[in-house]
């Protein structure tokens, strides 16, 4: 009698573990997939895909909430790599998400015109702008991804995109 109760209890516990496993495994495999998708993205963090950076976009793609053709900086090459990874039909990037310049560009601040409002610093997704309140700001060109997110917030329009140095 006791043996039977124990056996049932052990079996129930095992069954519970077996039933819970797939959910645990699926979260880790989803995290892995997000990482693999994120590895293929250009890390421009520009938000053109309508998400707040490359990783959020990767997460959305992994969950089927976004298509693979939403990354203009990565271009058709990235879309093709995503298609291969996810075993889907390749697609060209949808131009409605934006068009990238042919040559890589970085932001440039016209320093005499800068009033030191720090709005661009807050907008920069990769902390590539240095400066402080009421002090001149400047772009660290080597860290700039060319996302253009600093341009709209500037109240004096003193930021422009310039070709990146080779």
């Amino acid at each position: 009698m006791l043996a039977a109760i124990l056996l049932t209890a052990v079996l129930a516990a095992l069954l519970a573990i077996v039933m819970l496993l797939p959910t645990a495994a699926s979260t880790t495999s989803e995290a892995r997939l997000i990482e693999r998708i994120n590895d293929l993205l250009p890390q421009t963090q520009c938000g053109r895909c309508t998400f707040k950076g490359c990783k959020p976009y990767a997460t959305a793609v992994a969950r089927g909430e976004a298509d693979i053709n939403q990354c203009p900086p990565g271009g058709d090459a990235t879309a093709a790599e995503l298609a291969t990874l996810l075993r889907r039909e390749p697609k060209r990037v949808d131009p409605k998400f934006g068009i990238m310049p042919l040559r890589a560009e970085v932001a440039w601040i016209d320093e005499p015109a800068c009033i030191g409002c720090t709005k661009c610093i807050q907008a920069c997704p990769v902390d590539a702008i240095v400066g402080a309140s009421k002090f001149m700001h400047t772009v660290i060109a080597a860290q700039c991804t060319g996302c253009e997110l600093c341009i709209p917030p500037c109240p004096v329009d003193c930021i422009e995109m310039r070709p990146a140095a080779d």
């Binding site: 994120n38 993205l41 890390q43 963090q45 950076g53 997704p125 990769v126 902390d127 860290q143 991804t145």
Partner: peptide, 17 residues
């Protein structure tokens, strides 16, 4: 080079987040 830059940008983005 592009990969190295992307890795740096990703690290900066994540640390900012």
């Amino acid at each position: 080079t592009a990969r190295r830059q992307a890795d740096a940008a990703r690290a900066r983005f994540e640390s900012r987040e």
